[in-house]
Design a protein around this nucleic acid. Structure first.
Lengths: 220, 220
DNA sequence: ATTTAATCTACGTGAAACACGGAGGAGGTT
DNA sequence: AACCTCCTCCGTGTTTCACGTAGATTAAAT
């Protein structure tokens, strides 16, 4: 008999994990060998088990799915990562792929598509759910029009201080409150904020909050 | 043979629906008779089918699970509503119960708990997942200490104009932009904003954005 | 050892936003 | 007619934003 495709499932909601496991039980060629609810748990598992495919939810407490993907690519390049997400923002998808993900599926897919995706990725191909590939195409077309080449994007990463301020801002603290907390001048807080906005290409606090939520910097 | 508990499942992500359906197939006493991905679809179904229990995701496009619950209570009081949510905010839970939900489960539960919950609710009892009941208890204790009686909460509902402004603010438009869009003065925009904050007991734009996301007023 | 780059810190200025309070008019209810 | 809600708008003082500038520290590169 053929070797089954071995999968580890990572999602912070047990109900979702149970559901997906249950779905995949119907697929004879796929075997969920283990599961994790956080990055820490996952890395613990990987000390003993190496799956063929890792199914990662993007939004995890602590380390985001995308960050995990980067680490996996570096430490265990033979493991193929498939991202499962509720969000289909362009930047999101782009960052996931840049991090080395082989597939990106929106949660609005059916079980058949999930199984197909796993099989394709296992073969070494890439797989995107319909909505996701639409967005990639649109983005490509748009970039072609505006003359921006793929990959010329923001590679900016926030410094730890900036991340700290981003978090506090998104949590709803005012500048004076943040200044007091961190024992720095209000102007400094403003400076950091400005830099953050510039780096992330964000224009409003609203966008900043959304960014923080999507990247699991704060809880919703 | 005993009549099965008939369930309709409402969630906007098909993968989640498929997963839960698959889980519930193992429970002989429960039957998922139909499913919907939006409020509109659900009400269409309810014209022909009346389930015993409705499993509702809180965050749905268009009408939130809580709003749906209210309508269900009014139109079909015999149907029992169970809320399934990723969020366990106090206000959230409180509003769901006030709307008439019989249960509130965090998605971080296992399949066994889900089945138990359905059975309990079907018997006419209420059911809350562990984390949820913790929050209810804490809230109760806190209110007892501060002397606020249960139910004395905000019952404020936003006017349509306010909702319109809330949406634009959360989407990231500045006051002048909103004023121009709606052809009103900037001061008026500010007034609406102030009223919204007062009604929702929010203090910052960050909170406002989060509120808008949780209540599906904007997309993340 | 010197240069270079990155980071954290801070300020000045004018425009925009916020908090607080007041108020008039349109439209519906009692 | 009196009442209420909602939408509209303003005054005033404080805070934040946008944009530019810049000193201090530190780490990496040559």
């Amino acid at each position: 008999m053929m070797k089954k495709i071995q999968v580890i499932l990572v999602d912070d909601h047990q109900l979702i994990r149970d559901g997906i496991k249950s779905l995949l039980q119907d697929a004879q060629q796929i075997e969920v060998i283990n599961e994790a609810s956080s990055a820490a748990e996952l890395f613990q598992l990987l000390k003993c088990q190496k799956p063929d495919i890792l199914i990662l939810d993007v939004s995890l407490p602590g380390m985001s799915g995308i960050e995990i993907t980067k680490v996996i690519q570096k430490e265990f390049p033979s493991i193929r990562v498939m991202i499962l997400s509720m969000y289909i923002g362009e930047d999101f998808i782009f960052n996931a792929l840049k991090a080395g993900a082989r597939g990106y599926l929106h949660k609005n897919i059916n079980s058949y598509e999930l199984i197909t995706a796993i099989e394709e990725i296992n073969k070494g191909n890439e797989y995107f759910s319909t909505q996701v590939s639409d967005i990639i195409l649109k983005s490509f077309v748009k970039k072609a029009h505006t003359g921006v080449k793929q990959g010329e994007e923001k590679e900016e990463i926030l410094t730890s201080r900036e991340l700290e301020i981003l978090k506090l801002v998104a949590e709803g603290f005012s500048n004076p409150e943040i200044a007091e907390k961190l024992v720095i001048s209000i102007r400094t807080v403003e400076s950091h904020k400005t830099h953050i906005m510039q780096k992330l290409l964000l224009n409003t606090v609203a966008d900043l909050v959304k960014f923080a939520i999507r990247n699991n910097i704060i809880e919703l």
